[in-house]
Simulated scan of single mutants.
Amino acid sequence: MQNTSKYFNLSDMMVEYFNFENKERDIPYYNHNPRLTKHAWIVLLSSVLISFIFYALFEDVSEFFASFIFCAILLVPLMYYSDWDFSLIFHRPTKSEIKLALILFIGYLIYAIILGGVIEALLSITTTTSELTVNAESLISLVFSMMAEELIKFIPFVFIMRLVYKSTSNRKLSIITSTFIVLIFFGLLHYDFETSIISVLLLQGLGSLFELYGYIKTKNLFVPYLSHLLTDAVIFILILFGL
Rank of each mutant, 00 (worst) to 15 (best):
K99I: 11
H228S: 04
T218M: 10
L173N: 04
F54M: 13
V164G: 12
F20I: 06
F105A: 00
F68P: 10
S141L: 03
T128I: 04
L57E: 14
G187E: 02
H228R: 02
I239G: 01
L45K: 09
I73G: 08
L109Y: 06
F157K: 11
S141Q: 01
L163M: 15
S178P: 15
T168H: 04
F193V: 14
T195F: 03
K6Q: 15
T129V: 09
L226A: 09
M1G: 15
I27Q: 08
D26S: 05
K217N: 06
A72R: 03
E150W: 01
I89R: 08
E194H: 13
K23C: 09
V200Y: 01
Y55M: 03
E194T: 15
L122M: 13
F68S: 08
L183I: 07
M14A: 10
E137K: 09
F8T: 12
H190K: 01
L123H: 02
I198Q: 06
Y7K: 11
L212E: 01
W84R: 01
Y215S: 09
N33D: 15
I125R: 10
Y111D: 02
L201Y: 11
L10Q: 09
L240V: 10
N33P: 03
Y80F: 10
K219C: 12
I42R: 07
P224M: 07
S51E: 04
F70N: 10
F157C: 12
I27A: 01
F52C: 05
S47A: 03
L209N: 11
T127E: 01
H228M: 00
H228T: 00
A40E: 14
L240S: 09
I152H: 02
E211C: 13
F58S: 14
S47D: 03
I198C: 03
L229Y: 07
K99G: 12
L139T: 07
G116V: 06
I42S: 10
G187V: 03
H190C: 02
F185Q: 02
S130M: 11
T195C: 11
L163Q: 13
M13E: 13
K219M: 11
A72D: 07
F210E: 00
A56V: 08
H32D: 06
D60E: 15
I50C: 08
S87H: 02
L45H: 12
L132R: 15
Y213D: 06
F86G: 02
K23I: 02
E59W: 08
T195E: 13
V48T: 07
L142D: 08
K95L: 11
L206N: 00
T177H: 04
L229Q: 10
F193T: 14
I113S: 15
T37F: 08
N135R: 10
Y215K: 04
I181E: 01
E194F: 04
L104V: 08
V76H: 01
L203A: 02
F180R: 12
N31Q: 12
K6C: 06
L240Q: 14
I197K: 00
F185L: 08
A56N: 14
I155R: 00
D83H: 03
I42G: 07
I98L: 09
V158H: 06
I181Y: 05
V76N: 05
A233C: 01
D12Y: 00
L230Q: 03
K38R: 15
F20S: 06
